[in-house]
Amino acid sequence: MSSNNWHSGKTQIFWTCKALIDGRTISHKTEIREVRGWRLGSIIHRLKAELHWPILVEYRGPDNIAHYWLSKDAIVSELRFPQSAKALGVKGDAAQ
Protein backbone atom coordinates (compact mmCIF):
# COMPACT_ATOMS: atom_id res chain seq x y z
CA MET A 1 0.00 0.00 0.00
CA SER A 2 1.31 3.40 -0.93
CA SER A 3 0.77 6.30 1.44
CA ASN A 4 -0.19 8.30 -1.66
CA ASN A 5 -3.48 6.39 -1.71
CA TRP A 6 -4.56 7.79 1.66
CA HIS A 7 -6.78 10.81 1.16
CA SER A 8 -6.59 11.91 4.78
CA GLY A 9 -4.01 14.28 6.18
CA LYS A 10 -0.93 12.63 7.63
CA THR A 11 -1.61 14.34 10.95
CA GLN A 12 -5.10 12.81 11.06
CA ILE A 13 -3.79 9.31 10.32
CA PHE A 14 -1.05 9.61 12.95
CA TRP A 15 -3.55 11.00 15.48
CA THR A 16 -6.00 8.15 14.83
CA CYS A 17 -3.34 5.45 15.21
CA LYS A 18 -1.91 7.06 18.35
CA ALA A 19 -5.32 7.54 19.96
CA LEU A 20 -6.22 3.90 19.32
CA ILE A 21 -2.95 2.43 20.60
CA ASP A 22 -3.21 4.72 23.65
CA GLY A 23 -6.45 2.92 24.49
CA ARG A 24 -8.79 5.79 23.70
CA THR A 25 -12.30 5.53 22.33
CA ILE A 26 -12.62 8.08 19.54
CA SER A 27 -15.40 9.47 17.40
CA HIS A 28 -15.71 11.85 14.49
CA LYS A 29 -16.50 14.62 16.97
CA THR A 30 -13.25 13.92 18.83
CA GLU A 31 -11.28 14.06 15.58
CA ILE A 32 -12.85 17.37 14.57
CA ARG A 33 -12.08 18.89 17.97
CA GLU A 34 -8.49 17.65 18.25
CA VAL A 35 -7.10 17.70 14.69
CA ARG A 36 -9.82 19.39 12.65
CA GLY A 37 -10.21 16.23 10.58
CA TRP A 38 -13.18 14.98 8.60
CA ARG A 39 -12.04 11.52 7.50
CA LEU A 40 -12.12 9.30 10.59
CA GLY A 41 -14.48 6.73 9.07
CA SER A 42 -12.22 6.41 6.04
CA ILE A 43 -9.07 6.10 8.14
CA ILE A 44 -10.68 3.44 10.34
CA HIS A 45 -11.87 1.53 7.28
CA ARG A 46 -8.38 1.51 5.77
CA LEU A 47 -6.75 0.47 9.06
CA LYS A 48 -9.18 -2.44 9.36
CA ALA A 49 -9.36 -3.54 5.72
CA GLU A 50 -5.77 -3.03 4.56
CA LEU A 51 -3.69 -3.29 7.72
CA HIS A 52 -6.01 -5.66 9.64
CA TRP A 53 -6.23 -3.62 12.83
CA PRO A 54 -8.71 -5.16 15.29
CA ILE A 55 -10.82 -2.03 15.69
CA LEU A 56 -14.22 -2.29 17.32
CA VAL A 57 -17.13 0.09 16.79
CA GLU A 58 -20.23 1.00 18.71
CA TYR A 59 -22.94 3.34 17.43
CA ARG A 60 -24.24 5.59 20.19
CA GLY A 61 -27.00 8.08 20.72
CA PRO A 62 -30.00 9.04 18.63
CA ASP A 63 -27.73 10.02 15.72
CA ASN A 64 -25.86 6.68 15.77
CA ILE A 65 -22.42 8.27 16.10
CA ALA A 66 -19.65 5.72 15.59
CA HIS A 67 -17.18 5.32 18.47
CA TYR A 68 -14.02 3.34 17.71
CA TRP A 69 -11.45 1.62 19.90
CA LEU A 70 -8.72 -0.95 19.53
CA SER A 71 -9.53 -4.43 20.80
CA LYS A 72 -7.98 -5.19 24.18
CA ASP A 73 -6.53 -8.32 22.57
CA ALA A 74 -4.51 -6.24 20.10
CA ILE A 75 -0.73 -6.56 20.34
CA VAL A 76 0.61 -3.16 19.31
CA SER A 77 4.04 -4.50 18.39
CA GLU A 78 2.38 -6.79 15.83
CA LEU A 79 0.27 -4.09 14.13
CA ARG A 80 1.17 -2.83 10.67
CA PHE A 81 1.24 0.97 10.52
CA PRO A 82 0.56 3.36 7.64
CA GLN A 83 3.62 5.28 6.46
CA SER A 84 2.70 8.49 8.32
CA ALA A 85 2.41 6.61 11.64
CA LYS A 86 5.37 4.19 11.29
CA ALA A 87 7.14 5.84 14.24
CA LEU A 88 4.37 4.63 16.54
CA GLY A 89 5.32 1.04 15.78
CA VAL A 90 8.91 1.50 16.90
CA LYS A 91 9.39 0.30 20.47
CA GLY A 92 9.52 3.22 22.88
CA ASP A 93 8.11 5.80 20.42
CA ALA A 94 4.43 5.12 21.08
CA ALA A 95 4.53 6.96 24.41
CA GLN A 96 5.88 10.16 22.87
Rank of each mutant, 00 (worst) to 15 (best):
51 L>S: 05
70 L>N: 02
19 A>K: 02
22 D>A: 02
87 A>S: 12
1 M>D: 12
71 S>H: 07
14 F>D: 12
77 S>P: 04
65 I>A: 13
71 S>V: 07
83 Q>H: 08
93 D>H: 03
81 F>M: 02
28 H>S: 05
4 N>K: 13
16 T>R: 06
91 K>A: 09
55 I>T: 07
59 Y>E: 13
20 L>R: 00
70 L>W: 05
20 L>P: 06
3 S>A: 01
20 L>E: 09
75 I>G: 02
62 P>D: 01
95 A>S: 15
94 A>C: 05
42 S>Q: 06
56 L>A: 05
23 G>Y: 09
34 E>S: 01
82 P>H: 00
66 A>V: 02
2 S>Y: 11
95 A>I: 15
9 G>F: 07
15 W>S: 03
47 L>A: 06
83 Q>S: 10
73 D>Q: 15
87 A>L: 15
17 C>V: 07
5 N>I: 13
41 G>I: 10
82 P>A: 00
18 K>W: 11
77 S>K: 04
45 H>E: 13
32 I>E: 12
58 E>W: 03
55 I>R: 05
35 V>D: 06
72 K>Y: 08
12 Q>Y: 09
16 T>L: 11
90 V>E: 03
50 E>H: 14
73 D>W: 04
52 H>S: 07
1 M>Q: 14
41 G>E: 01
96 Q>R: 14
26 I>F: 12
54 P>Q: 07
91 K>P: 12
45 H>S: 09
54 P>N: 00
56 L>E: 15
34 E>V: 04
22 D>C: 04
61 G>K: 03
26 I>S: 06
9 G>V: 08
82 P>Y: 00
30 T>A: 14
23 G>I: 11
74 A>W: 01
81 F>C: 08
85 A>R: 00
93 D>Q: 07
60 R>L: 10
61 G>H: 07
76 V>R: 13
52 H>Q: 08
83 Q>N: 07
31 E>I: 05
22 D>E: 04
48 K>Y: 06
1 M>C: 14
44 I>Y: 01
30 T>I: 10
